[in-house]
């Protein structure tokens, strides 16, 4: 069963890759938009610092953070909720439920394949963005830090995907989940550190920002490269793992209960 799931996943992955290749302009346009927000932030923060502003982090930290943020956002993002909700609402989910494989396999394959393709387009853009600021980029050389970064990214991606399944599954109960999805995106956007580094947020917000889950999607993976304090990082890894387990459990509970309702009441 597990081997069969892996084979289906690989087949779906290949198909997704072929599909993405058909829409040549879609990826560059999307990745250009992904780079735009951090680019604007980068320019204005550096501009503000040049004008005398004094944020609580160094210019190097800000520059490195804002250059990396688009890569991290891309790799930890998920877009399944909308499609999942639509398939539940329209009854298209039936086409998956009568197949002998997990309903979320196609979404996971789409997520992974699209991220690989996005990264291929995004990296050159990030390199171009980084060139003018290369003097202020401060990245660690130790491979262990990069491994930790990769782990934190994978955890962040798993958490976002699980939250997406939770939001999408709400369509088992509600007709329209777009507003909920908008709120979730808003929370992620602001509290994850995707627009503003959490380190420059007002100091009073510190305790709240450290405990809420969204920070472990974007800000924490970047911190694994920028924060030198090992104890801080260990605590962060543990907190992130706890949030991921919670998100996975929530996704499982909501999906199973939703499916039971679907089987019980129909589409």
């Amino acid at each position: 069963m597990t081997r069969s799931t892996a084979l289906v996943f690989l087949a779906l992955l290949r198909q997704e890759a072929r599909l993405i290749a058909q829409y040549r302009w879609w990826l560059p346009a999307m990745q250009a938009s992904v780079v735009t927000v951090p680019l604007i932030s980068l320019l204005v923060w550096r501009g503000a610092v040049a004008h005398g502003a004094e944020p609580p982090v160094t210019r190097d930290y800000l520059t490195t953070y804002l250059v990396l943020v688009s890569v991290v956002t891309t790799l930890t993002s998920s877009w399944t909720a909308k499609f999942l909700a639509e398939s539940i609402r329209s009854g298209r989910l039936d086409a998956w439920l009568v197949r002998p494989c997990s309903t979320h396999l196609a979404a996971a394959a789409n997520n992974v394949a699209e991220k690989v393709a996005k990264l291929a387009v995004l990296l050159p853009l990030v390199v171009v963005l980084a060139i003018p600021f290369h003097d202020d980029l401060d990245l660690p050389a130790h491979p262990g830090r990069w491994l930790l970064f990769a782990w934190a990214l994978a955890m962040g991606a798993a958490m976002t995907f699980s939250l997406d399944v939770v939001v999408g599954s709400l369509a088992f109960w509600w007709q329209d989940v777009t507003a909920v999805d908008r709120f979730r995106h808003l929370a992620t956007l602001f509290l994850s550190g995707a627009v503003v580094p959490l380190a420059v947020m007002p100091a009073d917000w510190g305790p709240f920002l450290r405990t809420q889950p969204f920070g472990y999607v974007v800000a924490f993976p970047i911190r694994t490269l920028l924060e030198p304090d090992a104890a801080d990082l260990r605590a962060g890894v543990a907190a992130q793992a706890a949030w991921v387990v919670l998100a996975l459990a929530a996704a499982r509970v909501v999906w199973v209960r939703g499916l039971r309702r679907y089987h019980g009441a129909g589409a």
Partner: peptide, 28 residues
């Protein structure tokens, strides 16, 4: 079992039928 929904496609829309068949090969 198998189901044909007259109003819901089981085939993947943007790729060839052979590709959809290949996925079902792995699935079944």
């Amino acid at each position: 079992i198998s189901v044909i929904f007259g109003q819901k496609a089981m085939l993947w829309w943007d790729v060839s039928t052979r590709e959809s068949l290949k996925i079902h090969r792995s699935m079944y």
